Computed example of a mutant assay.
Amino acid sequence: MKADLPLPKYHQIYLVLREQLQDGGFAGGLPGELALAEQFGVARVTVRRALEQLAAEGLIDRTPGRGTVPRAGRPAAREGQRAHLTGLLENIVSMGLRTKVRVLACDVLPAPEAVAQALRLPPGAAVQKAVRVRSTREGPLSLITTHVPEPLARGFGRRELAAKPLLILLEESGVRIGRAVQTISAKLADAAVARHLDVQVGSALLAVTRLIHDDADRPVQWLHGLYRPDRYQYEMQLSRVGGIDAKVWVSTEISAHFH
């Protein structure tokens, strides 16, 4: 955990575990106190206090002899702000060409419910799931998980994903990219993410969910990315439009910067 953060260590652990619970994690039960203490590098009493706070909020049930499990009917994850970012597509491809990528996994599997819904697929339809770490010369930049309908991903796999941006691979497979809908929020790094991005557990990350459509408005790619905010940022140009009595700010250009 980050010792220099103003939040107590138990509260940092509470925040990380709460986000994982809200994302549907720990379906089979949470690790024990000792395992969590080793994962976060803290004393067992610190973990216990974090779990007590989660239990007080109704997010978990703690039963002696049975362990700790998510509580049924717990509050759903909060929805982020949605933004239409079609002007970013060229920028995304450019970033892919100027960074290095390491493919951690590439498999064809049944689509989880949320992914199937986003991609407008039948429940359990086959999708290609790829997990990649993108880096610059300064180190890891992002951890990206993508889902693509299996028929669209038959022309590429682990080797191709390591060499080219996914949008280019889709276009080479005959997909004509149209628009993107993107959600931007914040997330705290858990142990696995912290290891891949070379940050401390509990570090704040920029969380991006992006749904790519083709020119017929068919969803063709669902992406969830975690970015280091010290190496990646969005920039939006705004202009005033409308009459003197009803001027509003609208975005005219959006770009992403990294180093």
Score class of each variant (00 low, 15 high):
residue 225 G to E: 12
residue 153 A to R: 00
residue 232 Y to K: 02
residue 75 P to Q: 06
residue 146 T to M: 08
residue 64 P to N: 09
residue 164 K to N: 07
residue 42 V to D: 00
residue 171 E to G: 08
residue 10 Y to R: 15
residue 80 G to P: 01
residue 63 T to Y: 07
residue 134 R to N: 10
residue 185 S to C: 12
residue 152 L to C: 02
residue 27 A to P: 04
residue 240 R to D: 11
residue 77 A to Q: 00
residue 83 A to H: 14
residue 155 G to D: 04
residue 94 S to N: 12
residue 2 K to C: 09
residue 36 L to T: 05
residue 23 D to E: 13
residue 79 E to I: 04
residue 232 Y to R: 00
residue 243 G to W: 06
residue 182 Q to M: 15
residue 150 E to I: 04
residue 259 H to G: 11
residue 213 H to V: 06
residue 226 L to Y: 09
residue 216 A to R: 15
residue 7 L to N: 12
residue 221 Q to M: 15
residue 52 E to L: 13
residue 201 V to N: 00
residue 158 R to P: 03
residue 121 L to Q: 02
residue 210 R to N: 01
residue 108 V to Y: 12
residue 70 P to R: 04
residue 77 A to S: 02
residue 249 W to L: 13
residue 99 T to A: 00
residue 28 G to N: 10
residue 184 I to F: 06
residue 208 V to P: 00
residue 107 D to P: 04
residue 242 G to T: 05
residue 46 T to F: 07
residue 69 V to M: 07
residue 71 R to D: 02
residue 205 L to M: 03
residue 189 A to T: 02
residue 7 L to S: 14
residue 185 S to M: 13
residue 92 I to A: 00
residue 119 L to D: 05
residue 216 A to Q: 14
residue 238 L to V: 08
residue 36 L to H: 04
residue 213 H to S: 07
residue 249 W to E: 09
residue 48 R to I: 10
residue 28 G to A: 09
residue 234 Y to P: 04
residue 26 F to H: 05
residue 216 A to C: 10
residue 68 T to S: 06
residue 46 T to V: 07
residue 257 H to E: 00
residue 116 A to Q: 12
residue 255 S to Y: 03
residue 11 H to P: 05
residue 28 G to I: 09
residue 135 S to F: 10
residue 238 L to A: 12
residue 2 K to D: 15
residue 84 H to C: 09
residue 91 N to E: 02
residue 19 E to H: 05
residue 40 F to V: 00
residue 4 D to H: 15
residue 197 L to Q: 03
residue 247 K to H: 06
residue 230 D to N: 03
residue 176 R to L: 15
residue 159 R to S: 13
residue 97 L to M: 00
residue 176 R to D: 14
residue 22 Q to I: 00
residue 37 A to K: 11
residue 170 L to G: 03
residue 241 V to S: 10
residue 61 D to H: 11
residue 199 V to T: 04
residue 198 D to H: 13
residue 110 P to C: 10
residue 240 R to T: 09
residue 218 R to D: 10
residue 156 F to P: 01
residue 13 I to S: 05
residue 74 R to S: 01
residue 126 A to H: 04
residue 115 V to P: 00
residue 196 H to W: 15
residue 238 L to D: 05
residue 178 G to A: 12
residue 98 R to S: 01
residue 221 Q to G: 05
residue 13 I to G: 02
residue 81 Q to N: 09
residue 131 V to D: 05
residue 200 Q to V: 05
residue 94 S to Y: 01
residue 36 L to E: 03
residue 60 I to K: 02
residue 258 F to I: 00
residue 149 P to V: 10
residue 249 W to F: 12
residue 259 H to S: 07
residue 212 I to N: 08
residue 223 L to K: 03
residue 127 V to F: 04
residue 121 L to Y: 04
